[in-house]
């Protein structure tokens, strides 16, 4: 294997999208390294990383996807990755936390938290939002490895919550693993 491509696909959700995308990868001799997909509001989106022979070029992939796009109305974005895809990419950082934020639904809620994280140089690893009646819930998985004082961060979140009328709860990711993942030993979770 020589090079890796990151491929992002979006389409109106229907049966057969995964089959179409993986056929393209398979036909070019590719090997799937990682894949993540979700469906939101009836739209399917997927991001995947695949490894190919050195001879495979971005244009080869674009050609193959163009052929598929004609019949499936699927949009694809392709980029060659710089360097190798690290095998342990999906291992979460040691100080992974989950911030849940709830508020009466209004414009700018995600932006408010996004700005806060950006101002603290905090990387968001994952984000899920849900809406129930008027209550909007955001669940951010964040990497706090670079945060030097958890006490200070918690105080700043307390102020943010008060100012923006947000209910904020910051918990270490280990707590969720411990309380929900029956098969994972606690020693594994805390990394003993």
């Amino acid at each position: 294997m020589g090079k890796s491509f990151v491929i992002s696909v979006m389409s109106k959700d229907r049966p057969g999208i995964i089959a179409a995308v993986t056929t393209v990868v398979f036909d070019l001799g590719g090997d799937l390294a990682d894949l993540n997909q979700s469906v939101l509001g009836g739209y399917f989106t997927m991001i995947l990383i695949a490894e190919f022979d050195e001879s495979v070029q971005k244009k080869d992939l674009l050609e193959k996807f163009s052929a598929v796009q004609k019949t499936t109305a699927m949009e694809a974005l392709i980029n060659e990755m710089e360097g190798d895809y690290p095998v342990n990419q999906r291992v979460l950082p040691r100080e992974t936390y989950v911030l849940t934020a709830q508020a009466q639904n209004r414009k700018g809620l995600v932006k408010c938290l996004g700005d806060f994280f950006y101002s603290k140089n905090i990387n968001v690893l994952d984000l899920v939002t849900t809406s129930d009646k008027d209550m909007y819930t955001m669940i951010f998985q964040v990497d706090l490895t670079e945060v030097h004082s958890m006490g200070e961060l918690r105080n700043e979140l307390k102020i943010l919550g008060k100012d923006q009328q947000l209910q904020l709860v910051l918990q270490h990711n280990d707590i969720y693993m411990a309380t929900n993942e029956v098969g994972t030993a606690l020693e594994t979770i805390i990394g003993v």
């Binding site: 993540n36 989950v98 849940t100 994952d126 984000l127 899920v128 849900t130 819930t137 669940i139 998985q141 209910q167 709860v169 918990q171 707590i175 969720y176 309380t179 929900n180």
Partner: peptide
């Protein structure tokens, strides 16, 4: 992947 139902169940245990 984040499981919002599991996370909110744990948040409720802590907060409420």
């Amino acid at each position: 992947m984040l499981r919002s139902d599991q996370i909110m169940a744990t948040v409720e245990m802590v907060q409420k």
